[in-house]
Structure formats: C-alpha cells, structure tokens
Design a protein around this nucleic acid. Sequence first.
DNA 1: TCCCAGGCGATCT
DNA 2: AGATCGCATGGG
Length: 259
Amino acid sequence: MRMTGIDPYKIAQSGQCFRMRALADGSVEALAGRERALLRPVGAEEFELECAPGQENAWRTYFDEALDYDAIERDALGRDERLARAAAKAHGLRILRQDPWETLISFLISQRKSIPAIRGCVEKLCERFGEKRDGAFAFPTARALAEAGEEALRACGVGYRAPYLADAAARTLSGALPLDEMGGLPSEALLERLLTVRGVGVKVASCVMLYGYHRLDVCPVDVWIERTIQADYGGASPFPGYGANAGIFQQYLFMDRGA
DNA sequence: TCCCAGGCGATCT
DNA sequence: AGATCGCATGGG
C-alpha cells in the first residue's frame, strides 16, 4: 500500500508518539497497539507501507489520511509570522489517531521527562509486559499493567509515576474508566473524566484528547509552548484565536521549539 | 556536580 | 483561589 504527502520522519520526531523511529536503511518503523508497520521511501513524499494482512485501512486511519492537511497548513500560513514559519517546517506532519489507553499511559510517563527518557520507559514497559508479536512487543494491556504491580512498573524507570500507572490500569480494567466509550463524550466532559485519573492534570489530559481522541482544537501547553508564548507572543497565548486547528498548530510550534 | 525534562499533587497563605 | 515545593530518574 502506498501513502503520499506525509513525512513519517517528522511524525516520529514530533513527540506525539514514542514508538516510531527511523531505521538505518531510511525506512520508518511504526508500532501501535499490537501492530507493526514499516514505511519505505519510494519517491518524493511517497512511502510504501508494509503491514500485517488486513491492517491497511487501520494504518490509513492511524495516519489520518482522510484529513486535508494542505488546507490546514494554508490556514496556518495565513495566521501570524511565527506560526507560518513553524508550519512551513512541519509540512507532512500528521496528528496520529492513537489509542486512548496507549496515549494515556505514555503521557502519564511524560511528565518531567525528556522525550528520549519517555521512549526508554515505554519501550521497557512493552518489553516486560507486552505480548511478543512478529519481532516486536505489543503495548501492554490494562490487565498486564494492573497485574504487574507498582514495584515492577517502577523498575521500568517511571519513578514516582508508578502508582499513577497502576491506578490508571486498575480503573481501566475494572471498567471505572471506559476509555473507548469516552470517545463519545463532548470535550468538556471528556476532560473532566480524564482529570479523575491520578497523575493526570490539564496538560496530560490535553495530550490524551489531542493524540488519543483526535480533538484537534485542544491545545496542550507544556514548558516549551509556554516559553514560545512568552518569547514570541509577548505572553499572550495565540491559541484561543486559532480555533478548530489550535491543537495542530500547537504541534507545529512544539516541533519548532527553541527556534 | 548541576540542571533540566511535553507536570502534578500536597500544602501553605 | 493563587503561589510554592517536592518528586524519581536519566541525559547533557
């Protein structure tokens, strides 16, 4: 299957997912849930996607193929100078449609960690508690993490976040936190439910909403985005004015952080 | 050795 | 309601 117009290298680097990486031969490996895909470059902005039989449409959805990102980039280019610069550099980026559970656990870990450190923790969790499947490890299920115990979780380098993961896993397993059903909630109610998870504040909840529930208007504000607001927007957040694409524009600016 | 990382919860005023 | 502080761990 062929995919055009996307830049998987940028997606892998974007900080929205932690199990996607460029390989030495120039292809990009994507791991999501129990599945694995390989994107091999075959031309300009063109990649051949190799995946398990029957998974093609799932990967098309994952890479948000149906959305017109060229139109979104044009929107960004017409806003302000700072955003336009970031959007131009981010050409080919997509907001992935990730699984809410995987997103929740990943961003619970993310607090006060660098992106390489997050990747390391996530990979350890997968190796130790995920099912081995065709040369890679699946992301661990809620049951697997609930049964692992806090100490075994802590041994993956998650530190003080271990009880947060245990709580999220237990509540997901019991049905108290029905992550899949919560996709039907309006954003305000969804945010409220996510904030009931220990270790989830507004920033982590925003990441789960944007990356796990594809709420593209939701804008996570982390230390980097806050710095950008201070340094480039004089302390006045531009995101309320960005409307339906605020979350995507946040991602453009996050990728261009420090520039 | 020091400082920071895609923050959050507890504990003050 | 707002401000401050401690927190596990790894990398520069």
